[in-house]
Write a protein that binds this DNA or RNA. Structure first.
Length: 712
DNA sequence: AGGTCTTTCCTTTTT
DNA sequence: GGAAAGACCT
């Protein structure tokens, strides 16, 4: 037995590590060291039980959790983690399907994974094509239905009349995906399960291969994922699942807490281990977390305890305005920074992404470094997806999906009419869109542009095969030869940002080039393109950088910080309004529980009497979770006048209509709401360029923007 | 066909 | 207050 395996583990944790045979379920409270248990267990299997790394399958929900587990296991066992299947559900399935999908033709191993934006576009086009208005028939609703169907979630169709339409759209959508060899996120899991179910040879192969299976965040599995785990572990049944019912916060995408009970029912020999000691948080933080979660009905009361001390009572601040709330956060961060904390010790959390905007502005204003999680992911940015589509088309000319995406991007006068013509022609000749260009009988500007486009792609293909050109330079060649760079350069500052993002893509190519040096250039790119859709923005973050982290509670899952601010703790924001109307208050409460338990040393609850929502000022009540925490457990800070300053409607419209007119000339000194003082360096019609002090630099903005005022 | 102005709807949460 | 789709014009 390797000594380091059990080092520093309590009895329960040791038991969880050492019980390697048969089904085991670990109910792990927040901060009870479940990641430690998971990684030590894998190390134990490899080092002491002589299990090959390739016989272990460990699945998590986020790339981040998977990467962390991989790194920590690598440290412990000192072997190449390349052979280990430590990944997310989705990337496990993607990897499985790369070798097995041809069992269910017409899919081929060259399949492409599409993201939600792509799915929505396809559904939107179908709805329009069927003659319905997307205003009345929202693509999102259809997508939700399609996804629920795939995941085995009962979908309540409110309007019975629509049922036929739902089915029709779903069938068209799925047909379209199959025809183009596309898989959406749900397909990855569903098709993997289908192959395992239908092909016994495949099933037996993988059941034999994965002698040990570990599942993290088990409470977040949906029906299909549950079935997948069960079938994979069907032979050896060495299935180890870790979860916490109180942290189930993904029911909106089909997660079923019931799976916890179902598992023990399906596998009656399951050994149950409870981890109840919390090593993360102080007593008072744990106490209020328990206060909140105990309001949920029907849960098994856990007895989470800690021997941590060093207590600071959590603080509660209410601002007159959200700006005041933000100022409070800024002040506290500054104060604690002086006391010796680093910026990276702080996290600011909120219920939904849009709440980050105003706190970002304030952090900017006070020059505090922060990093925003979530928002638009790097890999779903239009420019990144466009360049990837170019790469795909260059590599395989029959990729119609990519062809359609970029044939008129940048604009080449190849409009929908021309595409329809090309499609019809392709149907007759049974060729891809790209290959149909030759046999198209047409003329005019559009047609000439199409011919040009074809030669550009062929030229780029030559560049790709030309080993004298560094692989990463293919991106520059695309930017240059397709006119994409030109288009971006002409679109001002935003275009510059987009160009920078595309340069980032080059570093990703370089990464793949380095780690797959034995593959051909085309194969390296294919490998990257296959994996890119499953990458999320989280992968792109540098969590060690000394900056304040901004994220939603969902993004915070599995993370911990010394100091946590839970902001905008107001009814209808958190708990979220829609959740309230859907009767999912229990899940909101679990989200709150997750938030509180992220904090190690200090916790702040903040809110404000007024806040702008959709550009309108609103007043919300204090979140019910504050009273559930208990006022006695919080230290009220700041003075709060209980008068709610609601502006009259007349005053509001006055504010909106207030038009600023700045008479600016070069050399004038102005003050900007966010960037401070600056000097006008250029005036061009309605646009002025103003030089601000570093690091802001020169900004172009509207002359009459209300945030600018002339000083002298 | 494409550019620009106008309107609408919006906001849960994510792989 | 802002993105994105639609309307309208060139």
């Amino acid at each position: 037995m390797s000594e380091e395996i059990l080092n520093g583990l309590n009895d329960r944790q040791q038991e969880a590590v050492l019980t390697t045979e048969g089904p085991v379920m670990v109910m792990a409270g927040a901060g009870s060291g479940k990641t430690r248990v998971l990684t030590r267990r894998i190390a134990h299997l490899i080092l002491d039980k002589n299990v090959y790394p390739s016989q272990i399958l460990a699945v998590t929900f986020t790339n981040k959790a998977a990467r962390e587990m991989k790194e920590r296991v690598a440290q412990l066992v000192n072997t190449d983690t390349h052979y280990m299947w430590i990944s997310t559900f989705h990337s496990f399935c993607a990897r499985f399907l790369r070798s097995e999908i041809e069992h269910i033709a017409p899919y081929t191993t060259k399949y492409q994974i599409i993201d939600d934006d792509d799915s929505e576009k396809i559904v939107r086009d179908i709805i329009k094509d069927l003659g319905y208005d997307v205003k009345d028939y929202k693509p999102r609703v259809f997508l939700k239905y399609i996804s629920d169907e795939k995941n085995g979630v009962d979908y309540k169709i409110n309007q019975r009349d629509y049922e036929d339409l739902f089915v029709k759209v779903k069938e068209r959508y799925q047909k379209s995906l199959v025809e183009q060899n596309l898989l959406d996120f749900d397909d990855l899991i569903v098709l993997t399960l289908r192959i395992l179910n239908e092909f016994s040879d495949v099933r037996e192969k993988y059941q034999e291969k994965f002698k040990y299976i570990l599942v993290d965040e088990f409470q977040d599995t949906n029906l299909v994922q549950y079935e997948l785990i069960k079938i994979l572990g069907g032979k050896y049944q060495n299935i180890f699942v870790v979860g916490d019912e109180d942290q189930s916060i993904y029911s909106f995408r089909g997660a079923r807490v019931e799976n916890v009970a179902k598992f023990r029912c399906d596998l009656p020999s399951t050994k149950l281990i409870l981890l109840e000691e919390n090593y993360r948080s102080t007593k008072s933080i744990l106490n209020i977390a328990n206060n909140v979660i105990k309001n949920n009905p029907g849960r098994i009361d856990k007895n989470l305890f800690t021997s941590n001390s060093n207590d600071v009572t959590p603080k509660y601040f209410t601002g007159q305005s959200s700006y005041e709330e933000e100022l409070f956060i800024v002040d506290e961060i500054k104060k604690l920074k002086l006391e010796g904390y680093d910026y990276k010790d702080f996290a600011i959390m909120y219920r939904s992404n849009h709440l980050s905007r105003s706190i970002e502005e304030t952090l900017n204003k006070y020059r505090l470094p922060y990093e925003l999680y979530g928002g638009i992911s790097f890999f779903t940015r239009k420019e990144i997806k466009d360049i990837c589509a170019y790469l795909r088309l260059i590599i395989s000319h029959d990729d119609d999906f990519s062809f359609e995406r970029i044939v008129n991007e940048p604009k080449r006068k190849i409009g929908p009419a021309m595409i329809t013509k090309l499609k019809d022609n392709g149907l007759v000749t049974k060729k891809s869109l790209f290959d149909s260009i030759d046999s198209l009988s047409a003329s005019g500007n559009g047609y000439n542009a199409l011919i040009d486009f074809k030669f550009t792609i062929l030229e780029l293909e030559e560049d790709l095969l030309n080993k004298d050109i560094p692989l990463t330079n293919i991106v520059d060649k695309i930017l240059d030869k397709t006119g994409y760079a030109k288009m971006l350069k002409e679109s001002g500052e935003e275009g510059e940002d987009r160009l920078e993002n595309i340069q980032e893509l080059k570093s990703l190519i370089k990464e793949y080039e380095d780690s797959y040096s034995d593959l051909s250039r085309v194969d390296i790119l294919e490998e990257m393109l296959q994996n890119i859709t499953l990458k999320t923005d989280m992968d792109n973050k540098n969590e060690d950088s000394d900056s304040i982290k901004l994220m939603t509670y969902h993004q915070a899952k599995g993370l911990e910080f010394k100091i946590v601010f839970m902001m905008a703790m107001e009814e209808n924001i958190f708990p979220n309004q829609l959740a309230l109307s859907e009767n999912s208050i229990d899940e909101e409460r679990r989200i709150c529980y997750v938030g509180i338990t992220r904090a190690r040393e200090r916790l702040y609850i903040t809110n404000s009497l007024t806040r702008y929502v959709f550009g309108h000022q609103e007043s919300h009540l204090e979140s019910r979770f504050v009273s559930e925490i208990g006022y006695d457990n919080l230290e009220r800070v700041g003075l709060v006048k209980r008068t709610i300053p609601v502006q009259s409607a007349a005053k509001q419209t006055e504010d909106v209509k207030k038009v600023v007119s700045n008479d600016l000339a070069i050399g004038d000194v102005v003050s900007h709401k966010l960037f401070g003082e600056g000097r006008v360096v250029e005036v061009k019609d309605k646009i002025v360029s103003i030089a601000f002090a570093s690091p802001v630099g020169i900004k172009k903005m509207l002359k009459d923007h209300p945030s600018i005022s002339k000083i002298r």
